[in-house]
Design a binder for these strands. Structure first.
Length: 809
RNA sequence: GCUGGUGUGGCGGAAUGGCAGACGCACGGGACUUAAAAUCCCGAGUUCGAAAGGACGUAUGGGUUCGACUCCCAUCACCAGCACCA
């Protein structure tokens, strides 16, 4: 078979016939399958694209065979920095290069012959898409969830923009590896923190990899504890957050972050010089230096003391740069006896290490933190666990009015503004009279101008575009300026899965409430794990928000999530030209895409990925030829003798077992096992082929089922073979073959026989036998009889169809 | 440090607590061929043995069980994420 040319032929025919058209009226058995859409990079489709799109396309095809009305749209995440950086290098406008790249990539994706529903294509840089990105912004603004504040932000000096926490990797910009600077700027945020608890709780019911759920839990970082108010002699309140309120009796010192507003008020004149010097130094250090676990904690005494609300102890207050100003209250209590690093800190600055406190009688008492009775010098704490002690102590604080239960989250609000050109304009207007007001919905979209000066200047290049920036205030009609920033591209992608079903309509709504609730949420979402704390979290947040404003009945956009593993170079490192990276096209042209697809399915676990080795591609071609030979031979067999032979039953067994196992393997994305099952069936066919007097009807059925089973894994090959064996177009409109359970129950099977849990023999038994009959037969076995002779059988275990174990003494 | 994951032949990898290593690669052998390729068939965890057969085997050490790759506890190694988060 000429694999390369038949692919072209069928791709064209399928596309012409619109074979995989999604039927929006038949939603009772819909299946919404989605791969994370890609950034139009303009490069040729590489192996990673095939790995992602090709194999999940096979999954979609499988679902179609199973009778599902599969919705599998495709689009492009088209705004973003790469196009702009490319523009700065080449002078080609981001819009032009992006349009061109989309054209190239779309053509290649279509050439894959995949079942994507191109008639629902979305491109995030199209005004009819970003109209809804802006609409979303306005809705969030109206609910107080989009807001501006002056805040320390991550600023990438090379990209000249603010980036989100999620885009900072080890203090470096994830795109260009520049060291990220920390600036105070007035910025737009989405209040994702309002949903922290719900985002956490919602994870439990999702069919997602445990790993990904853990990543999100970790990222949200819920910490249940308490706030404790300490007062200085001057009556200044310092509130600390602690998850270990039970150690309150052992507080040796308090530490405040240099940036905390209260720090100023704590500095006593005699300490002024050293403290200022310290703060100045701290400001120079970057976050990594400050928060590295390897560098010892340093700090400086402010000169102030506070009173421990429970013990009345006088506790010194330090400034230290390891305390993070933005987490919780930015003030921490140090318990030297409990925490190793607090211990080191206390020793370094000669602070009292409160292993001992004075009890009511003035005697010194040891402070083990498990002995709460003694610790608190009160019988009411006797024998308490840490958790019980925590609760009791906080209750005492509440009674004193000096503390409360408190939960903190590591999650910060989502910084969404970018000082870049190639993004969705933020639909806000700054009016000198009315302040900041949203663009009225009827005026959306705010069009991104085809600017000529898109060079980033740290303030938003749109600010230099006069015809864009100058506008009138929608409230008072006076002169006003538009917001010059654009949105993070993760805003674009946070709702695309909800917009897809409506991609064909440019209505007055982002989507029809009725329709989205029937077709959504996404049943299965396929994409990389690298989006665990970014895109996947943002999308969940936006879904919950849309639910809250009455747009959605569901609040989790992705029911099931599959991460494909990464294909690595042959040296196990990220793929590059040096370690064997090739364009997928090189293989497609030589062996055909089906051979490539089969090899990818078979050679690595989809979910784990691994180093790429291409030896197998040619073997898959051989395998397909082997399949073709037997199929074409069997297709021409004539007559219909039906001998009841063992060989025939063996083949029937393998066929039906394959039908069953293949399905299971596909459902769990275990494509490697699925292909192995196909090979087993083919081997069984060859074995049966040696039989002289064949059951022709069985051969024909096997052959037909085999070709259908191949349809998801090797779509062009299966279609061609389907035609060649004389079946009616198209194999992709067939139903998945039914497994005849009666054929996978054999009359006789071989089971293992154990004596004292050790295999001593194998014997054939009839499956119709009762356990008693099986035992009787097993005991009659020569070897077994010899072993049990003269001994007492203590226990007889029969696992039907598996094993017999006789315990003798 | 915390969280999650992984650990099975030379390699990729199979195994609802029930015959470990399916399927394939590489390897060896045979058939066909003048020969090679292709194809078809057979073999193969390691080790002792001529063979029959035996011993040892799923990172390590324990445990539960008639029986553990699978469940539990501890340890080690590697991968990933978070990390003076109080």
């Amino acid at each position: 078979m000429d694999f390369v040319n038949i692919e072209k032929k069928w791709n064209e025919k399928w596309e012409k016939d619109n074979l995989y058209k999604f039927d929006p009226t038949r939603l009772d058995k819909k299946y919404y399958l989605l791969e994370m859409f890609s950034y139009p990079s303009g490069a040729n489709l590489h192996l990673g694209h095939w790995w992602n799109f090709g194999l999940s396309d096979s999954f979609g095809r499988f679902k179609r065979l199973k009778g599902f009305n599969v919705f599998q749209p495709m689009g492009f995440d088209a705004f973003g920095l790469p196009a702009e950086n490319y523009a700065l290098k080449t002078g080609i406008h981001p819009e032009d290069s992006t349009r061109y790249n989309i054209e190239v990539m779309e053509r290649q994706l279509r050439e894959m012959g995949a079942t994507f529903n191109w008639d629902y294509e979305l491109v995030t840089c199209n005004p009819d898409y970003y109209k809804w990105t802006q609409w979303l912004f306005v809705q969030l603004y109206k609910k107080g969830l989009a807001y501006q504040k002056e805040a320390p932000v991550n600023f990438c000096p090379k990209c000249n923009t603010i980036i989100a926490n999620e885009q900072v990797v080890n203090g470096l910009c994830e795109r260009c590896d520049s060291e990220v600077q920390h600036k105070n700027m007035r910025q737009w945020f989405f209040k994702i923190t309002d949903y922290a608890d719900e985002l956490l709780a919602g994870l439990d019911k999702l069919d997602w990899p445990e790993k990904t759920k853990a990543l999100q839990r970790n990222w949200i970082g819920k910490s249940v504890g308490a706030e404790v108010d300490f007062y200085t002699e001057d009556g200044l309140k310092l509130t600390v957050f602690t998850s270990r309120a039970d150690t309150l009796y052992g507080v040796s010192f308090l530490v405040i972050a240099p940036e905390n507003k209260l720090t100023e008020k704590l500095i006593k004149p005699e300490q002024e010089k050293v403290v200022r010097e310290y703060i100045e130094n701290a400001a120079k250090k970057d976050e990594i230096e400050r928060t590295s676990t390897t560098t010892p904690k340093t700090g400086v005494f402010t000169g102030s003391y506070v009173i421990n609300p429970l013990t009345g102890d006088k506790v010194p207050v330090f400034v230290a740069d390891y305390v993070i100003a933005s987490y919780a209250t930015g003030i921490v209590m140090g318990v030297a006896a409990h925490d190793e690093r607090d211990f080191d800190f206390a020793k370094k600055y000669n602070l009292q290490i409160k292993r001992v406190v004075n009890d009511a009688n003035g005697n010194e008492v040891e402070l083990p933190f498990t002995d709460y009775g003694k610790l608190c010098n009160s019988e009411e704490f006797d024998g308490m666990t840490s958790a019980q002690a925590k609760e009791k102590i906080v209750e005492k604080l509440i009674a004193l009015g000096k503390g409360r239960f408190k939960t903190n989250y590591r999650l910060r609000d989502w910084s969404v503004a970018r000082q870049r050109y190639w993004g969705c304009p933020i639909p806000m207007i700054h009016c000198p009279k009315c302040g900041t007001v949203p663009v009225p919905e009827k005026d959306l979209p705010v069009m991104l101008p085809h600017a000529t000066d898109y060079k980033p200047d740290g303030e938003g290049p749109l600010g230099k575009c006069e015809e864009f920036i100058n506008t009138t205030c929608p409230v008072c009609g006076g002169k006003a300026r538009r917001e010059a920033d654009t949105m993070d591209t993760f805003v674009d992608s946070s709702f695309y899965m909800l917009r897809y079903p409506e991609a064909q309509h440019n209505d007055n709504e982002i989507f029809s409430r009725d329709y989205i609730n029937k077709i959504g949420p996404v049943d299965c979402y396929v994409g990389g794990v690298e989006h665990a704390t970014g895109h996947l979290l943002y999308s969940r947040f936006i879904s919950k928000f849309l639910r809250d404003i009455g747009m959605l009945d569901f609040d989790e956009p992705f029911q099931r999530l599959i991460h494909q593993g990464m294909i690595l170079g042959n040296d196990g490192r990220k793929m590059s030209k040096r370690n064997g990276a090739k364009n997928a096209d090189d293989y497609v042209r030589e062996f055909g895409s089906d051979a490539l697809r089969l090899h990818m399915m078979f050679s690595l676990k989809y979910i784990e990925g691994g180093p790429w080795s291409d030896d197998g591609v040619k073997h898959m071609k051989s395998f397909m030829e082997r399949v073709e030979r037997i199929c074409l031979k069997w297709a021409t067999l004539e007559g219909d003798s039906a001998p009841e032979t063992k060989a025939e039953k063996d083949l029937e067994f393998v066929l039906n077992k394959t039908i069953k196992d293949y399905e299971e393997s596909f459902e769990t994305f275990s494509f490697n096992v699925a292909v192995a099952r196909l090979m087993e069936l083919v081997n069984a066919m060859y074995k049966y082929d040696t039989v002289e007097n064949k059951n022709i009807a069985l051969c024909k059925k096997t052959l037909k089922d085999l070709v259908i089973l191949f349809a998801p894994a090797a779509p062009h090959f299966a279609e061609e073979l389907w035609q060649q064996i004389g079946e009616e177009y198209s194999v992709h409109n067939q139903s998945y073959p039914a497994c005849d359970e009666s054929k996978i129950v054999l009359d006789t099977i071989e089971i293992a026989v154990q004596v004292n849990s050790k295999i001593v023999s194998r014997t054939n038994i009839a499956t119709s036998w009762t356990n008693e009959q099986v035992l009787e037969n097993v005991k009659a076995d020569e070897k077994v009889a010899a072993l049990i002779a003269g001994k007492t059988i203590v226990k007889e275990i029969v696992v039907p169809g598996r094993i017999v174990n006789l315990i003798v003494r």
